[in-house]
């Protein structure tokens, strides 16, 4: 009976640890959110969205950073999404089960988790050092490279979920492959494809490392894509590490904006994904 008691005790102990582990993970999510709201909300005002980033010691907002983030994220997604979707389409439709698809999937999965700072270095090498200056467009290209693997992955996964009967029915009606894919498979997988794009936007809008030495930063409002451009994450990085209290406050407010945006995008992506194929 003592052996049984011992096993019971070990079981109780280990199971409690598992509970504790889950509580640990969730606890930190809560702690981070509480800190963000607590510190970030204090700096919320209309100025945040209408004023430029200030010099230390004076009042200001984050308008140029918000604008820069929106523009570069939009461009990055606009460049990356078509490429990613086409590549995903090839893998799921034309090259299903081929060796090439297998290799590309492998490479794509590696790109998906590759350090984003390396992407920044890469774009610096191919664009910034050739052009001779930092620019918003280089930042957008860096974000596009972040976006591509995300979109490739979801596009392939979602197209693979479309039932083969749908394609067969369309083919039997005499539709060419191109129409079968764009008019039937894409439509059936629409919710899933949108999910992929939302996830890509969420990923791109929070990225800092690839922008550090591509778009750099800009204290002024700039719509020139050929010039350095501010972005929220980079401003957060710069302001948080500064010794000025008002800059740090702006960094927290910016962080709250970014996090709320990213979490909203991720949650809506998840809601859409639940609808899945056929929605």
């Amino acid at each position: 009976m003592s052996r049984y008691a011992q096993r019971r005790r070990l079981n109780f102990f280990s199971i409690s640890l598992c509970y504790a582990a889950a509580a640990f993970g969730l606890g930190f999510l809560l702690l981070i959110l509480i800190a963000l709201v607590g510190k970030g909300l204090g700096g919320f005002s209309l100025d945040l969205f209408t004023q430029m980033t200030p010099p230390p010691g004076s009042k200001g907002g984050l308008l140029n950073a918000i604008y820069g983030s929106l523009v570069m994220t939009f461009l990055g997604v606009a460049i990356g999404t078509p490429i990613g979707m086409l590549a995903g389409t090839y893998m799921a439709e034309y090259g299903r089960g081929t060796k090439l698809t297998f290799i590309v999937r492998f490479i794509n999965d590696i790109l998906l988790s590759a350090p984003s700072i390396v992407i920044g270095l890469f774009v610096y090498e191919i664009m910034v050092s050739k052009m001779g200056h930092f620019s918003g467009i280089a930042g957008a290209v860096a974000l596009a490279i972040i976006v591509i693997p995300v979109v490739v992955r979801t596009t392939e996964d979602m197209l693979l979920l479309v039932p083969a009967q749908m394609r067969e029915a369309a083919t039997a009606l005499g539709l060419p492959r191109f129409h079968v894919i764009t008019k039937i498979a894409y439509k059936a997988a629409r919710a899933g494809l949108v999910t992929g794009i939302l996830l890509a936007i969420a990923r791109a809008s929070g990225e800092t490392a690839p922008l550090l030495f591509t778009a750099l930063n800009n204290q002024f409002f700039s719509t020139d894509l050929n010039a350095p451009m501010a972005s929220l994450p980079v401003i957060i990085f710069q302001f948080a590490l500064s010794p000025y209290a008002d800059w740090q406050q702006l960094a927290w407010s910016g962080a709250l904006i970014v996090t709320v945006a990213v979490l909203c995008l991720s949650i809506s992506a998840r809601v859409l994904a639940r609808k899945g194929v056929g929605g």
Partner: peptide, 16 residues
């Protein structure tokens, strides 16, 4: 919730 923890940008973790 645990997956959302993965979606939070890394700069937020740094700031925190």
């Amino acid at each position: 919730a645990i997956e959302l923890l993965a979606a939070i940008p890394s700069i937020i973790y740094g700031l925190w």
